[in-house]
Computed example of a mutant assay.
Amino acid sequence: MQHDKMLASELSVGMVVHLCPKTLRGKGAKPNGPSEQWVQGNHFFICVAAGPKKCSLLPLFSNSSAERKALSTEGRTGHEKWTHGTFHFYPWQTWTASRDTISQAARAGGDLSRTGSRNLLDPTVVPTLP
């Protein structure tokens, strides 16, 4: 798959990317919470904080649980799998990584978004970090 050279610079609050958590960890990403509950396998992640060098992300899950919170279905744009899907998140499972690491994890995770066709959630309904 061709590398999306613009992703790292375009990362912003509300952007949703399909990432490989193994690549994130291998490149130094720091997830919170108990390691036995860290997301496994490629997943959608939503950017909840975007700095000039690093971003914070929440992995998204299709199944609910007692500890997971539902993600808003309002304000979504992008691919149908994202706009029509049901997603949940653990408020405490935040991953912090450099923009370059996220870009590499997107390539490894098979992210198909590109400039002009990103998966987005309106920033006004993006979960805030605890």
Rank of each mutant, 00 (worst) to 15 (best):
K30A: 10
L112K: 15
S65R: 04
A106M: 02
D111G: 05
R25Q: 14
C20S: 14
D100F: 12
W38T: 11
L58R: 01
D100C: 13
C20G: 10
P91C: 04
G51N: 02
G28E: 00
G110C: 07
W38M: 09
D122L: 06
L19S: 01
T101D: 05
K5V: 10
F45W: 06
R68H: 05
V13I: 10
P127I: 06
W38D: 09
L129D: 08
T124C: 15
T73Q: 14
V48C: 04
D122K: 12
E10Q: 10
H84L: 12
G110R: 07
S72F: 04
K30P: 11
T128K: 14
T115C: 14
L24C: 01
R99W: 04
F45R: 00
P21Y: 08
A97C: 05
R25S: 09
H43Q: 13
P31R: 05
I102Y: 03
D122G: 09
F87S: 05
R76F: 02
G75Q: 05
F44D: 03
D122I: 05
W95A: 04
S64I: 12
F87L: 07
K22F: 15
K53D: 09
G78I: 00
G110H: 07
S9L: 15
T83P: 06
K53T: 14
Q37E: 10
